[in-house]
Design a protein around this nucleic acid. Structure first.
Lengths: 249, 249
DNA sequence: TATAGTTGTCTATATCAATAGACAAATCTG
DNA sequence: CAGATTTGTCTATTGATATAGACAACTATA
């Protein structure tokens, strides 16, 4: 047994079904590296014993992961790991989507899903240093790497200062490039608050997740080098595909 | 409706029961501040309609939260919010347990649960810059603030250099103070990797959580100012009680 | 080519999760 | 006090979850 892999049992009558808990464990074991890519999982009977459940329950977990494209089951041979480990997404003073994932993926970009102008809510106004109710431009975006959805975010900008930033985003596919059109050559991450929760219906659809998945949530403010807030954002990352690596810049 | 509170619906046949999903939503709404302390929740029928479920399902969610000490239900009057918002736990180059929570709580300390000497696993050895299998001291600790469990961690130290650090921890209740006894006046956080998952059986017991809860997981390395690794740790935070605030120091 | 080991399928049963409806009990308001 | 609002309790029914056992289908290997 590698590391301090705890032989933790499973919780009953928890509101989370046993098959989902086991699927979570398997996903995590893969992400941690307990199972190499293309390696065979232990046979169903062994897993059932290890988790203290019926073989059929293990089968439910596995079939969910097969559906999800993480595993491949072959009758008579075994069940094999397909999926890669989690992407490691760096967060620090200079967080950039594409720069951060360099080397880990061959292709990545941001897709603009929608944009709208709305009055600033309390927290958006605070984050951007505007009056509550002031016009803000809201961009809904999805980050993709190698065809997998790795993030889903809402960003808010001062609608007056950054009028037309939605078009810039659609054209460039990059926040950094879009801000450059408004004379912002550099920006820093001022603050990041991190939490986690179950994915809601919107997350499931946008990030192509299975129900019951967990998302990491960051709420952040980007500022110019001299401290003026320019972007307030809430991003959601699928915990099964992404981990956040904090660099203290 | 405050902010962009999405009226997101609930996922069926997800492996996560509806009542648990709704309990999660309510917890989150409280943590975000949608419901003030002592405020009344909307009546059960209203919640049922809002989430598109039966009233009994909402009642299951509420009774779980009552059990958990987050809500208080009073017949004829309504259901009220007891719990505080989430603690905001700072993470940066100088992360210290007690220093970080200053101002948010009146009382906090670290409890040493157990200690042992074991051979270093792969990742511990890498983190501490030791040979795999070298003796390391492992400390299991729980962080408490105002009587609530807010973290659960395993820490590893070079057993030769820090022989007896377990006793120091037991006496001082502080990592910083214990390290000082070994001539470490200052240390920095070199790296932090962040992920999230469902709480396992050990987490549930240690952090006094209800089954189905989510934990934030950080894996970190602390180093001396000149870069020598001294501590490798894996910490788990209950997502419903704690958020992590990243400071780019 | 046997045989052991593995995944796939079927039937049956018990428990949990969710819906539905009705009414009691407590509280608040006019 | 009367009526409206809200939580608490009960019964009944349906579907999802989990267990149990048996056997078929396929694969690898001695």
């Amino acid at each position: 047994m590698i590391g301090q892999q705890v032989a933790d049992s499973i919780e009953r009558r928890s509101g989370v079904s046993l098959w989902r808990q086991i699927a979570d464990r398997i996903l995590q074991a893969i992400a941690i590296g307990d199972f190499a890519e293309n390696a065979a999982l232990p046979p169903e009977v062994a897993l059932a014993e290890r988790y203290g459940v019926n073989r059929h329950t293990v089968r439910s977990a596995i079939s969910a992961l097969v559906q999800e494209g993480v595993l491949r089951a072959e009758q008579g041979r075994g069940t094999f790991v397909l999926s890669r480990k989690r992407l490691s997404y760096p967060i620090g003073a200079r967080t950039r989507f594409s720069a951060g994932l360099q080397g880990q993926t061959s292709e990545r970009h941001i897709v603009l899903l929608s944009s709208s102008i709305e009055p600033a809510s309390q927290r958006v106004a605070e984050g951007l240093g505007l009056a509550r109710g002031a016009d803000v431009m809201r961009l809904e975006t999805r980050g993709e790497a190698d065809g997998r959805s790795v993030s889903r975010a809402a960003s808010w900008f001062d609608a007056r200062r950054f009028a037309g930033i939605d078009e810039a985003m659609a054209q460039t596919g990059s926040i950094t490039a879009s801000l450059a059109r408004f004379g912002i050559d550099d920006y820093l991450r001022q603050s990041t608050v991190l939490s986690a929760r179950h994915a809601d219906a919107a997350d499931l659809a946008d990030l192509d997740l299975q129900p019951g998945a967990i998302v990491l949530v960051t709420v952040a403010v980007n500022v110019t080098p001299n401290g003026q807030p320019i972007q307030f954002s809430e991003s959601r990352f699928p915990a099964e595909r992404v981990e956040l690596k904090l660099s203290a810049l």
